Simulated scan of single mutants.
Amino acid sequence: MKTVLHKANTRGHNSFGWLNSFHSFSFGHYYNPERMHFGALRVLNDDTVAAGMGFGKHPHDNMEIVSIPLSGDLHHQDSTGRNEIIRQHDVQIMSAGSGIAHSEMNANKDQQVKFLQIWVMPKELNITPRYEQKSFKPADRTNQILTIVAPDNKDAVWINQDAWFSLANFDAGKIAEYKLKNSENGVYVFVIGGDATINGVALNERDGLGIAETDKLSIEANTNTEILLIEVPMNINAD
């Protein structure tokens, strides 16, 4: 088993007044050659956007971009004419494929929006750009692991990669197990809130832990804990 630990206070950080952003991997003005990616996982940004502000229209290509609002609402618009509000408990994915331009703005004028923005390298290059958004009930991940992103599950949003994202809200003392879909994959665990022990490694809020060369994870919630599990290929091949 191989592990890489990213404590919350070692993440990259950029603040632009309207945006407060923490980077688990190299992004924008933050560059760390030891934190370029974890397998196919390229970006995990923990963003807070001021009321009424946001990211103006900008292009992407050949990247799977997942947005998970933690509080507040995001207003998404893109070059295909898509115009959507993404709310807490929603999950959005945009397969940029051959190219798309989009904006993401705080939909509210009176409160911040907090969200995770996650990029995964695609399995197939230059596909037709694609968008999907689903809502998930918090009760469906209480003391259990809920798949929210998958290439093979109609109840999740689809991703152009052999990757699976899962969310779980565990009560203190809960013990659970996550079995990898593919033992050659790795899993990046991100603690959204609380404290947990993963395969014997103690994690606190906003810590990240990458684990490879194992077929399962043992999870123990030391407090009431919310975690995100991102299972990705470790060998990156895009056609």
Rank of each mutant, 00 (worst) to 15 (best):
Q144I: 05
I159P: 00
I145W: 07
W164H: 15
D140P: 01
D171E: 13
N143F: 06
S135R: 11
A156M: 04
N153V: 02
D140N: 14
A139I: 14
R141H: 07
G173N: 09
N169T: 13
A172C: 13
S135W: 05
I148E: 03
P138W: 06
P138T: 06
W164P: 00
I145S: 01
K154N: 14
W164C: 13
A172F: 05
Y131K: 07
L167R: 04
R141T: 03
T147M: 09
A139Y: 10
F170Y: 08
N153Y: 05
V157Q: 05
N143D: 15
S166N: 14
N160G: 08
Q133S: 12
A172P: 06
D152F: 09
V157S: 05
D171W: 05
A150Q: 03
A139T: 13
I159T: 06
W158Q: 14
F165P: 03
A156I: 00
N160D: 12
L146E: 10
V149F: 07
K154V: 09
A163C: 09
T142G: 09
V149S: 06
N153Q: 13
K134V: 00
P151L: 07
V157A: 09
A150N: 15
E132G: 03
D162Y: 06
K154D: 15
P138R: 04
N160E: 11
Q144C: 10
I148N: 00
Y131N: 09
T147Q: 12
A156C: 08
T147F: 03
T142V: 07
A156R: 00
V157P: 00
F170A: 02
F165C: 03
R141F: 05
T142D: 09
T147P: 06
I159V: 14
L146P: 00
N143R: 10
R141K: 14
D140M: 09
F136S: 02
N153H: 07
A163M: 04
K137S: 15
K137I: 10
Q161F: 01
Q144A: 03
T147N: 13
K174W: 03
K174M: 12
I145F: 10
K137D: 12
I159G: 02
D155I: 01
A150M: 07
D162A: 11
D171V: 02
R141S: 07
D152K: 08
V149W: 12
P138L: 11
K154C: 08
I145Y: 12
N169L: 12
K134R: 15
A168K: 01
W164E: 13
R141C: 06
D155S: 15
A139K: 13
D155P: 00
Q161N: 14
L146N: 03
